[in-house]
Nucleic acid binder design. Structure first.
Lengths: 255, 255
DNA sequence: ACCTCTAACTTTGTCGGACAAAGGGACAGA
DNA sequence: TCTGTCCCTTTGTCCGACAAAGTTAGAGGT
């Protein structure tokens, strides 16, 4: 017969964790605002009354979480976590969980369509300008798959940005980080891929400008279906995302 | 005239970062599989030829990233990053970026609809059983807002799980973590809220069982619109997500 | 008074060694 | 089989130290 639970487990966190939690609390509840300096390590030693090694372990935790950074002179200050950095954590997780391209495709279809809908509804002049600029640059590198894939990734980030919905922006990022690197392979493998891609972007900008939701959704779908057809010429949609992607991500994360 | 770039910037990362990167690489590219033990700190000291403090800082980084854990006996081993832990990082970021409930609502509408579509299409017997079990428990606590809100959150996690799409599962989580805590307030404030919530869940399970996509989408929309109506009785959709949510998240993350 | 250069001073990254507390294993005794 | 004990290992924390890089203040020239 199991004994009745009389006591709750007591919360005994190691000191470095308590340090990290304490600083996190101050940042998250707004007492320390993004940009504000945290003290030097020595300051923190004094304030928390623990050894510098302990402080440093706590700092690593917060740094990895994106809550604090060291500026050019290596001093600590609070900062707003950057989406792309967080997203690369998620991408890494998706790789480890061995998600398939089918899952990626399905999720992206949803997320990119939602992005374009938001963009059509709320894109600002500036958003459109950025997109137009991107289109021009894409047109210039249509023969260079690597460069073009980069532009494509940026284009969709800009569309998400134009949706003015940061939750959507963040939600689509992990999938996108895994999704768009394949664009290079596809554009390389399929001759008419580059021009079709640029044409789709042109139609999308047009749809945003005319606030034509139907057209936006239609061209986003086509654009993704193009990707899919291209991909299926190379590999099965049921293949899991490859490990090699992570090299990309690791390099990107450090920036 | 700018000089031609003769040298690439050399990679001068601090030692603890290199340690973390090296271990991460081995995990991500699969040479160390989830569950495999990493050596003891002393082992790593020997292998990397750096001081234990340096090793420990590297370990903190990986631990925070969810790539390694310490088991009950505090020994290190690799593990699959847990979605909920990663998602709470994102939720935290969304709070700091002061996203509005409108953004949350819009994104959730997209993501939850996509989840139900996937669930209708691919839910297994077991998924349905889990959902049914959840429904029963919800019915039992319909008068207890806190408990009911918990069930509601779990219900939607289960729907996402039933979609068999892990990308979607991950993408919806951050928004959900911020979204569903409000359910408690709403159910408390609106008398008919609890029963309506449970009824919606029942219809959703029904739709999944009958593989009736239309019904699934319809009831998900209604369910979310109910939330919205309830929320707007309390506050404006344009209010930014409150800092207080994070207390939830911090506690949850440590588990 | 303004600019530049140098000489302290501070801070970070890393190192070596130290110790208490907790866990794991082996072993003896009930 | 269960329990208690001894020993060894591992972790969490501390202390003190030092080189490299950054910062500050003051000396010196204009």
């Amino acid at each position: 017969m199991p004994i009745a639970p009389l006591f709750r487990p007591i919360d005994v966190a190691p000191a470095y964790q308590k340090v990290a939690d304490a600083i996190e609390r101050e940042i998250v509840n707004g007492r320390i605002k993004p940009g504000d300096p945290i003290g030097t390590e020595h300051d923190l030693v004094r304030q928390f009354g623990v050894n510098r090694s302990t402080i440093r372990e706590g700092i690593r935790v917060l740094e990895e979480g994106g809550l604090i950074r060291r500026d050019s002179s290596r001093r600590l200050h609070a900062c707003l976590p950057r989406y792309s950095k967080l997203a690369s954590r998620l991408s890494r997780a998706l790789v480890l969980h061995e998600v398939t391209f089918r899952e990626l495709y399905e999720a992206s279809m949803t997320l990119e369509v939602a992005s374009i809908e938001g963009a059509v509804e709320r894109a600002s002049e500036e958003n459109v300008a950025e997109l137009t600029d991107n289109l021009a640059r894409s047109g210039a590198v249509v023969g260079d798959p690597a460069r073009l894939a980069e532009c494509d990734a940026e284009f969709h980030v800009l569309v998400a940005k134009a949706s003015q919905n940061r939750v959507l922006q963040l939600a689509r990022e992990p999938a996108a980080q895994l999704f768009y690197p394949t664009t290079e392979m596809i554009v390389t493998g399929v001759a008419e891929g580059g021009p079709r891609l640029v044409a789709a972007h042109r139609h999308l900008i047009d749809a945003i400008r005319r606030r034509d939701r139907e057209a936006g959704v239609l061209w986003t779908r086509r654009h993704l279906q193009d990707w899919r057809r291209g991909f299926e010429k190379i590999a099965s949609l049921d293949r899991s995302v490859e490990h090699m992607y992570m090299e990309h991500a690791q390099a990107a994360r450090r920036r």
